[in-house]
Amino acid sequence: MLKKLTAAAFSATLAVAALPATAQIYKGETSAPGGATHAAMVAIAKIANDKADIDIQINDGQTLTSAAIKNAQGKIDFSIVPPAVYVFMTKGQAMYKKMGQDAIDASQNLRSIFAFTGGAFHPMTYADSGITSLSDLKGKKVFTGPPSGAASKNVEEVLRIETGLEAGKDYEAIHLNWGAGTQAMMDGKLDAMFNATAVGSANVEQIGLTNKIRFLGIDPEKLNSQEYKDYLKVPGRAFGEIPANTYSGQVNEASVTVPMYIMVSATRADLDEDLVYNITKAFWENLDSVHESSALLKAITKETAFDALNIPLHKGAYRYYVEAGFDVPDAVKPQ
């Protein structure tokens, strides 16, 4: 009996040894579904798997500021990073203030692959709320973004510049994750929210299907003010428009000027150069498939790959861009 068990165990060992080695799994984090930041990470992972045989598993619903520092610390391999967040990390400021020098040190390990338009902040309220302008948000409950996120800092700065209203003093700034914020809006627990997503997003459309909505725009004549010029000095910030009739239930009869934002697909400097080269090559050589995967990604083009990019390129990505003839700005070339 003992001999039979020993023989069986030996055979099982041989069978296990004959199996192919398990392929390495890489980790990526991104925001909740519904926006370009999520769609971009999904597209990167799908192309990497389909065209380069590289397995990237995505953990979504995450705060981008948290994913960025985890990426820089080497705890994950890929993330989507707002350019302003990288600035804060390199200086140990804002959401990284408590980390101080640890954040500054970690930032040295963050590298980029490409930049893309992430979307627009949709300042929205229900049409019957009595709120018709951003100034009307005084004394109201306003979702500005996740806690300790770049979005809430951005939104609250715009509200201060546009109206003079201060978060926590003149209005109640509600900080939840994006999914919870949308649900709170749909449940009638908020007076207004700034939904950060691509123009034409299904998340906003979902709200407009059940209630008429109004977008609260910025006064275009104020965009030339020194305060807004200073606001735009932070990398990744921009302004754009939500056209009339973009969403079901939208009552705005004209386009609305809103803050927009650029995002960066990022990785870590110590990730294998050939791996990042292969992912970058596969992504750009299959850009049509990327565009087909989501209408939110049609703004990704070779011409805008380095717009607002302030994180140095990974050596693997840079190698591909040189080979493919991209005009790479000197400021983001690897050292």
Rank of each mutant, 00 (worst) to 15 (best):
G164Y: 10
P146R: 02
A180L: 09
T210V: 15
I161M: 07
K169L: 14
I242G: 05
M186T: 06
G130Q: 03
T125Y: 08
S225Q: 13
L165I: 03
I218M: 06
R160G: 01
G208W: 08
A115M: 04
L216V: 15
V158D: 06
V204F: 00
R214D: 11
G179D: 08
R214C: 12
T163W: 08
T132I: 10
K140D: 02
G217K: 05
F239W: 13
E166C: 03
T125M: 04
Y228F: 13
A180G: 03
A150V: 15
I131K: 00
V204W: 00
Y228G: 00
M185T: 03
S129K: 11
R237W: 05
E162T: 12
A184I: 14
V155I: 15
H122C: 11
L165D: 00
D187N: 14
A202K: 08
S135I: 06
T210L: 11
A238P: 02
F121S: 15
F239A: 14
P123N: 14
S135L: 00
V234P: 00
K153H: 10
E156Y: 10
N177W: 01
I207P: 08
G181P: 04
A192D: 08
A196P: 00
A180S: 07
K140E: 12
K212N: 15
K233D: 01
V199E: 05
L137W: 04
G200C: 12
K138P: 02
L209W: 00
Y231W: 13
K189R: 15
G119F: 09
S135P: 07
T210D: 08
G149L: 04
H122T: 15
D136E: 00
G149A: 10
T210Q: 12
E156W: 07
L232E: 11
A192L: 07
D219K: 02
K153D: 12
F215H: 07
L159S: 01
D136V: 15
V204H: 01
A198V: 14
K222H: 03
V199R: 04
L209C: 03
D219I: 10
Y171C: 02
V199W: 02
M185P: 10
G188Y: 11
K140R: 13
G188L: 10
S135E: 06
E227D: 13
N177E: 05
G130T: 12
